[in-house]
Design a binder for these strands. Structure first.
Lengths: 198, 198
DNA sequence: CCGATATTTCAGAAATAACTGAAAACTCGG
DNA sequence: CCGAGTTTTCAGTTATTTCTGAAATATCGG
């Protein structure tokens, strides 16, 4: 590996972190490299930078594409594929969350739904099913919330996050004005349209 | 493994999922079992239920304790250790998030902070550092937000999540009333104390 | 302090995952 | 449709992780 010290530190770190993130070391290193690179890199650039085999890079890039984490680029008069991480880091974060949800959450939610259809045959099963119901309902609520949040544009999302826990005062406020909290929105005068509220 | 079908399905699923969650199969299975079990289990119960070696269970339980995901219990007149998952599933979720943050986010944040102190020696390093700065600032904001959210009690958190994206209307509202958005709260009349606002 | 019971440690075996080199497959310009 | 350049596939090797059995350590009632 032949990289400037700063970059090397970063790349090695992401290699090690990779395993905690469900990808192997090479994939982590490739992505770290693409992330900091000032322009798209081709597979041979990566081979040279990281000192791993060509086939390993090929597989790593394939995996990063499966995660939708890289963009394919081309240079005129050059047949090779060039790869780049999205310029906008928020795009990366959103993609990561989306993909991890798909891999780590959704399969469990499906399994829970199926399992909750079954009829318990024993007291143990009955209790187990009750616990699974709790888990299902919680994950269900979280994914609904996530679907809502995902739809908020980044700038607005940042503003909201910067409010931090102060956001929770909106509850006191709504309560004081006699808002009821309903998810479908049918009966909820929001702060935007209070006219129906008091 | 000798468990009722419903429970077996659940346990096997968590075993497979375990690898995507940074723990091995046995650890995933043990936790699934403890989660649905109607009462605390000792190590031999687990050995019997899962059909793995005693030492494997011992190591698995140790890891779950390192994650703070299990509670140690004792029965009168019985020297063995009994283990249980927290009754309140929200406690489990909060612990998981906390621990994953500790393992997956915090080390990267530290590394970024250190790396950003260094002086870039080339154009490549300069650009790389710029990207690292973006990453650092984003993670920093997210962890600040998380620290705020973590402090909100569960019931209130659930209410907020159920508002979904409607929560974002609070921004329009504040803006219309001429609120500025500042993190320290010094100059921000919240919806609770509007008197200083116009 | 003894012996019975319970838990942990750890070296080696087994299983799994990552990586490589060589060959196959694909893709263009000519 | 040929062939040079490029990417992908995959069988075999290497590295890593997980799991086990045996031994060591710890704990407790008597």
């Amino acid at each position: 590996m032949n990289l400037p010290p700063l970059v090397q530190t970063f790349v090695l770190h992401f290699g090690e972190m990779g395993s905690r993130w469900g990808v192997n070391r090479t994939v982590g290193q490739i992505y770290a490299l693409l992330f900091v690179a000032p322009e798209p890199l081709n597979a041979d650039d990566i081979v040279e930078a990281l000192g791993v085999s060509r086939s390993n890079v090929s597989m790593g890039l394939k995996e990063l594409q499966a995660w939708s984490l890289v963009r394919l680029r081309h240079k005129p008069g050059d047949r090779r594929d060039y790869f780049a991480a999205p310029e906008d880091i928020w795009v990366i974060v959103r993609t990561l969350i989306e993909e991890r949800k798909k891999r780590e959450i959704d399969p469990t939610l499906s399994l829970l739904r199926e399992t909750l259809m079954e009829r318990p045959e024993s007291e143990f099963e009955r209790h187990a099913q009750e616990r699974m119901r709790e888990m299902h309902d919680l994950i269900d609520m979280l994914t609904d919330w996530y679907a809502d949040v995902r739809a908020i544009e980044t700038e607005r999302l940042v503003q909201l996050m910067k409010l931090g826990s102060k956001i929770s005062r909106v509850l006191d406020f709504r309560e004081r004005l006699g808002f009821s909290i309903k998810r479908d929105g049918s009966q909820i005068p929001s702060p935007d349209n209070e006219e129906g509220s008091r």
